[in-house]
Design a protein around this nucleic acid. Structure first.
Lengths: 358, 358
DNA sequence: CTGAAAGCGCTTACAG
DNA sequence: CTGAAAGCGCTTACAG
């Protein structure tokens, strides 16, 4: 806890050597011959200060390179203008893109972003949330449904506005800005059924604490049932990686050769499946149709290009920022508002009619 | 600036209604029958407090849900434990990946991340840097060389440790953690020359305020000159987008049909070029070789897979975090240390011997 | 329109 | 080992 001595200094004999790194209101006040109160007002309520005094203060401040101390302001105002985000990872383009838009929107309103990354399991959200809040976050963006009642309680107790993204969850206690995972997957599956597919399989990322994957799996089961397709649906749960998509496809090929279409719950899994299909000499979509989820940039570039579901990543980021900014504004303390955003089924070359029965 | 009245309250009659959102040291002190000084010590210098008192304090704190106020600590300690990062965008996997590793490493040491995104032009770095620092960042990660002497001066004056990533710039005033762009590009170009290519073109992203692209362009010119290849090198400068890579390839095909190999300064540009080559009926690498830069995940998945340069994204993030953490530690105020990291030429299917002269 | 003073929530040198 | 008090840098109710 030792320092070079010039920064922290309690008592009266502070800063004897080098000039302090950052000038404060007192320095500006001295230089412009007014009180610190006036300096503060010149910045925060300029209309209330006489023109010449204001100019003098501003000039002095700029000469000195003065900028208000954020910690002091935060302490005094009980307002940090910091918003936190908890995302599974930045190594997934859709999250990165959402966050990019989120932070840009925050910056536009003079807010800072605190970022935490956790894995994909939303049951481990309390700790990072607490960290963020204790360090000053006044509101929180989270990806996916909050399952932990402890977290909900913690946030409610401190009146921290939260917005859940990715999944739009109607009627949930916590407002969500996202899309309907169930409907989006059903649309895709409906399209495959209409093409004539009867033997479908799903490759999903872990559903543990991941409501988005859960919803897609449920949609799959229900859509098949609704279509009168009997038998245990083929569903393989893997971790979220290209290689896992590949090995899952290999397993389906070996153990469920009747399958003609594979619904992957992320483009990453689909890419892996696609590569493995080629390796095995399967024609896509001739022998097997493959679909993805999210419409990452590379989805349009594979061979064949991937049929997938485009997801409003940027818009979720912007809307979440605005909802949180709003909920955090002084006076307006009634919680952020959710919003359901549309997805889009993007049909490309990786899907087609099922092969003739062999 | 109105509030619900229960949060900010100056004077003696504060919090008459609801209990305050967050308990403070005084609350804990009262509940455990000690002074606030002791409460503080129980947390920050536990060894100095008698066992039973410490336990009592900790119990009271936990009952109350006490957590220290970060702003107050920051003000008192003159230490925020916040580190800032300025990256061009999160929409580029390599930056996202670096940042992901950076923030994870910071979190492990109890530090928070402030993030700012600017475009690719490093001449616009002063404003975001100032924002970050004024809001409490104690150190800064920047991508690419800092060209603005105003920024260098600003940072030096406030003794803000900075680390520049991506480019390793030996002998620079500001330490850098990255790789040698020149050497990496030369290695790639050397490989193409050895394959027999004589007519090369380069597609680069904007070199404006982007030393990485600049270095690669320079390497290209010099490598060609060194190889005794005369004539004005074909260099197309585009913005950083798939479609731009595509249009650049089309232009090369039309105006420089003699070209047999195209060096793209990013995988994104290369992807576009690859797609356009196919569209034009050019065989890759039969008619034309195409290379990328960075080895993003999708680079191995295109058809043919992309020959490219793998870049140590995660490691740059981790090392930058450690360097900054170190430079920021109390006592140790001698500036972060740079490091040169290796790249790796990844040869895949998009490159081959040049076509026979037609 | 301006200033003196209190207080936001902490930590720590100083005394005991 | 513990407490009283000062002070980090701000803003604002209160007085003038």
């Amino acid at each position: 806890m030792k320092d070079d001595g010039s920064r922290v200094a309690t008592g009266s004999q502070r800063r004897r050597s080098a000039p302090r790194a950052r000038p404060n209101v007192a320095d500006v006040a001295r230089r412009s011959g007014v009180s610190v109160a006036t300096v503060s007002r010149a910045f925060n309520a300029p209309g209330i200060v006489s023109d010449d005094v204001r100019e003098r203060v501003l000039k002095a401040a700029s000469d000195l390179g003065y900028a208000p101390n954020a910690a002091a302001k935060a302490l005094r105002l009980q307002r940090t203008h910091i918003i936190g985000a908890i995302v599974p990872t930045l190594n997934y383009a859709i999250f990165a893109s959402m966050l990019n838009a989120f932070q840009a929107r925050l910056a536009k309103s003079g807010h800072m972003l605190f970022l935490a990354t956790t894995g994909f399991d939303n049951r481990a959200l309390l700790e990072p949330a607490r960290q963020l809040v204790e360090r000053g976050a006044e509101a929180l963006l989270v990806v996916g449904r909050i399952d932990d009642p402890g977290l909900t309680a913690y946030l409610a107790e401190r009146r921290i506005p939260v917005v859940t993204t990715y999944s739009y969850l109607a009627g949930n206690q916590i407002p969500s800005i996202g899309f309907d995972n169930d409907a989006a997957s059903r649309e895709l599956i409906g399209y495959l059924l209409r093409l004539g597919h009867r033997r479908l399989a799903m490759i999903t990322a872990s559903t543990q604490g991941n409501d988005r994957q859960e919803a897609r799996v449920r949609a799959f089961r229900e859509a098949l049932a609704d279509a009168g397709i009997r038998g245990k649906p083929v569903i393989l749960e893997r971790t979220h990686a290209i290689a896992e998509g590949a090995s899952a496809l290999a397993e389906i090929h070996e153990r469920h050769p009747e399958v003609t279409a594979i619904v992957c719950n992320s483009d990453v899994l689909a890419i892996g499946a696609l590569a493995e299909a080629k390796r095995l000499g399967l024609a896509v979509p001739g022998d097997i149709s493959i679909t993805g989820h999210d419409d990452q940039e590379f989805a349009g570039l594979t061979e064949p290009a991937l049929t997938t579901i485009a997801v409003p990543a940027e818009e979720m980021g912007v809307r979440a920022a605005e909802a949180l900014l709003d909920a955090t504004r002084d006076g307006h303390r009634q919680g952020p508002k959710g919003a359901e955003l549309p997805t889009r089924l993007v049909i490309r070359g990786s899907t087609g009619k099922p092969r003739k029965k062999s």
